[in-house]
Amino acid sequence: MSESGYADAQPRMGFFTDTSVCIGCKACEVACKEWNAVPAPDDPSGMDLLGLSYDNTGDLGANNWRHVAFIEQQVPASRVNKSDVDNLGMPTIGAPEQEDDTGVRWLMSSDVCKHCTHAACLDVCPTGALFRTEFDTVVVQPDICNGCGYCVPACPYGVIEKREDDGRAFKCTLCYDRIGDGLEPACAKACPTDSIQYGEVSELRQRAVERKQALHADGVTEARLYGDDPDDGVGGTGAFFLLLDEPEVYGLPPDPVVTTRDLPAMWRRAGAAALGVAAAVVASFAGARR
């Protein structure tokens, strides 16, 4: 059964991004921009050294449909591999006995639109510009988007954004034009280490669980999946992740909920308040004219 409601729906397609093999090369970012002809900053003032490790694009947005996060962390010296060849924990730096004997780890992760099962952006879009494709992905039709901007604060992951000087909203299309032709999305194609894996979501979920178990067996107990759970607040995502730390460390919400899940309650509340207004108006006219 597909969420998409297409009679001839394809299997749901998505991404499993395994950040434990991401080398932060940013090929995905560039490939996405090349393929989708995302506008490029044409003068240096549009570019900033952000000082966020090697991340200089900062976040996902109208002009970054993939974004690679870089997180430098100090880890306790006890995590430094000394002589236990077989117990391979996380990569560490092994400085000799210094005053400050700490190891380092450097997490890299390529983020993207989650293509939520319950997509807030799509729910709140008043024009129908956002729609669900036959691959169960969430895509904006730029010719219909009226730039109302409602999808922007609706997305619990801060993905979709209005493009300055254009006004319309843009985000990852899961390369709708490529996957329709049986091609892999541009970012996945460019990823050298297969950190970005494209495929049928059901199959990817299985692969993700196996990968997590393998890492756990290797002592990388901090490996965890994010977005793979169909019972989470967005009904699971079409693009999910294997992370090596808490989601918020990567700039991801720890427990996102699709805002429209609460919409009926909100309407009830607003209805009650409206009745309250009506009652108050009526009551204020009751009896006296003075």
């Binding site: 807030a120 805002t259 509340r269 207004v277």
Partner: peptide
């Protein structure tokens, strides 16, 4: 329609992931 005009905008704001608004939906 007037009362609806008064309150639908509250839902408009609350139906987002903006924490102050969504948490304040009641």
């Amino acid at each position: 329609l007037g009362p609806a005009m008064c309150t639908y905008t509250a839902v408009l704001l609350a139906d987002t992931a903006t924490p102050a608004w969504h948490e304040g939906r009641g």
